[in-house]
Amino acid sequence: MTTEQLKLRTKQFSLSIIDLVERIPSTPASKIISYQIAKSGTSVGANYRAVCRARSDREFISKMEIVLEESDETLFWLEIILEKKWLDELLVQSLWKEANELTAIFVSSLKTVKAKTNTK
Rank of each mutant, 00 (worst) to 15 (best):
Val44Met: 00
Trp77Ile: 04
Ser71His: 02
Leu68Cys: 04
Arg49Cys: 04
Ser43Asn: 10
Ser109Asp: 10
Lys114Arg: 15
Ser34Pro: 13
Thr112Ile: 10
Val51Ser: 05
Lys85Thr: 01
Ile18Phe: 07
Glu69Gly: 05
Lys39Leu: 11
Arg53Cys: 09
Asn100Asp: 13
Val113Asn: 02
Ser109Trp: 04
Leu78Met: 11
Ile105Pro: 00
Lys114Leu: 07
Phe60Ile: 10
Phe106Ala: 01
Val44His: 01
Thr27Lys: 10
Ala115Glu: 15
Asn47Phe: 02
Lys39His: 14
Val92Asp: 09
Trp96Tyr: 15
Lys84Met: 12
Gln93Ser: 10
Gly45Tyr: 10
Ile105Thr: 07
Ile18Val: 14
Ser43Trp: 00
Leu102Ser: 06
Leu78Gly: 08
Ala29Lys: 11
Ser56Leu: 01
Leu68Ile: 01
Gln36Ser: 15
Tyr35Pro: 01
Lys7Asn: 02
Glu83Gln: 11
Trp77Cys: 09
Lys97Asn: 06
Thr10Ile: 06
Leu20Ser: 07
Ile18Arg: 13
Glu69Asp: 03
Ile33Gln: 12
Met64Asp: 01
Ser26Cys: 10
Ser14Gly: 05
Gly41Lys: 02
Glu4Pro: 13
Asn118Tyr: 12
Gln36Cys: 09
Ala46Ile: 00
Gly45Cys: 06
Asp88Trp: 03
Ile24Leu: 13
Ile66Ala: 00
Pro25Phe: 09
Thr119Asn: 15
Glu70Trp: 00
Gln93Gly: 03
Ser56Thr: 02
Thr112Asn: 15
Phe76Gly: 00
Val44Phe: 00
Val107Gln: 10
Glu69Trp: 00
Ile105Met: 06
Ile37Trp: 12
Leu102Tyr: 02
Ile80Gln: 10
Lys97Met: 07
Gln93Glu: 08
Thr103Ser: 09
Thr42Phe: 03
Cys52Leu: 01
Ala99Lys: 12
Lys11Gln: 11
Leu15Gly: 07
Thr117Arg: 08
Ile80Met: 07
Leu110Ser: 05
Arg53Lys: 09
Ala104Phe: 05
Ser14Leu: 03
Arg53Met: 05
Phe76Ser: 06
Glu70Gly: 05
Asp57Glu: 11
Ala29Tyr: 09
Lys111Thr: 14
Leu20Arg: 09
Tyr35His: 15
Pro28Ala: 00
Arg49Asn: 07
Leu6Lys: 13
Lys39Tyr: 12
Thr42Pro: 03
Glu70Phe: 00
Ser14Thr: 03
Ser43Ala: 09
Lys11Phe: 08
Ile66Val: 13
